[in-house]
Design a protein around this nucleic acid. Structure first.
Length: 334
DNA sequence: GGCCCTCTTTAGGGCCTT
């Protein structure tokens, strides 16, 4: 009998210990100095007594009561509430009715820009950042024609439930199983959630990892050109919006920056695997499976940020919002 | 598709993502 391939489980999260974000970031970078050829990812996904927190005041992760069992999904809160509450938006109902979609995108874009500006001016705000490395597997490269079939996330603060991964039912044939090993039979099943079922769960999971009033930085390799537009397209198909307190960081430009500064001498390109080989990170798990790539990118991120001497505030300065992509698309097509 | 580089910008090729 085959078991359901859905891998995530979300339970009540215990009160977190108090650590400063500085401590977290120093610990994060110390891995880059110390790990050598040994994977020490366990420290990143440590128990609640490990690397955790980064907040100036005591807080408690909000419990998640959402459960997903096969194709049965229940939620403890309305998805429509998540959008506004996550960013403490104070836009009245009448305002949202009166502005058109372009104006809403502009408001979101401006707010994200303001966040990055404010962090540049006030480093204390960097303590409100939740860093999450993520990766998606898809049925192909075209976000118009293809679908997401796997999502994996890792909250770098660690603690319980710091990992989230699930297969996604694309409702279509998977032509590239030879790439990631995910076949049509594995995902086109009634017990594998579709995106429309998964998005509210995903939002709630992210909300449980946020600091109160804070924001989330999602990190992926080639995020600007692939992962984020793909994710945004899936949200759009489901008539969902990416919360405005979600920012995105692409590690590909960071690698280019390292090459440009002479700190990275790569002859085999800037792919995830090329960076893995350069940094001497052992190959573990299946390449092109979402969580394996997430764990690998976590290690590469710590090396890149350490080598570039990037504090979190500097990292946030390099982020972009999903609405930024819409803006650039308009510009290029006009 | 977006970004970067160059034998460039009035362009095109290559890389990166699955």
């Amino acid at each position: 009998m085959r078991t359901a391939p859905m891998c995530f489980s979300i339970f009540r999260v215990p009160r977190c210990r108090i650590h400063t974000l500085t401590n977290f970031w120093e610990s994060f970078h110390s891995l880059g100095r110390d790990y050598g050829n040994t994977l020490q990812f366990r420290m990143l996904s440590s128990k609640s007594s490990g690397i955790e927190g980064g907040y100036s005041k005591r807080w408690t992760r909000r419990p998640i009561t959402t459960k997903s069992e096969g194709n049965k999904t229940t939620q403890s809160s309305k998805p429509s509430q998540i959008y506004d509450e996550s960013f403490n938006l104070k836009i009245s109902a009448s305002n949202t009715v009166n502005v058109n979609k372009t104006e809403i995108n502009e408001i979101q874009r401006t707010q994200c820009f303001d966040i990055r500006q404010k962090i540049a001016e006030d480093k204390e705000l960097a303590k409100l950042v939740t860093l999450i490395v993520f990766d998606i597997e898809t049925t192909g490269f075209s976000r118009e024609l293809e679908r997401i079939i796997e999502i994996a996330l890792l909250d770098l603060h660690g603690g319980k439930n710091s990992m989230f991964q699930t297969l996604v039912n694309p409702d279509k044939y998977v032509p590239n199983a030879h790439v990631h090993g995910i076949s049509t039979d594995m995902v086109c099943r009634p017990d594998v959630p579709r995106m429309e079922e998964l998005i509210p769960i995903l939002k709630q999971y992210i909300k449980s990892r946020e600091k109160p009033g804070g924001f989330v930085v999602f990190v992926a390799h080639n995020a600007r050109s692939f992962d984020v537009p793909f994710l945004a397209k899936e949200f759009s198909r489901c008539c969902e919006k990416i919360p405005p307190n979600w920012l995105f960081l692409d590690t590909l430009p960071l690698a280019r920056e390292m090459v440009k500064s002479g700190g990275l001498k790569l002859t085999s390109g800037l792919s995830l695997q090329a960076l893995r080989e350069y940094y001497g990170i052992p190959s573990t798990g299946s390449a092109h499976r979402a969580m394996s790539d997430v764990k690998l990118l976590s290690l590469i991120l710590q090396r890149l940020t350490f080598d570039l001497k990037l504090p979190i505030s500097g990292l946030v300065q390099k982020t972009f919002a999903a609405s930024d992509l819409n803006t650039s698309k308009k510009k290029s097509s006009s």
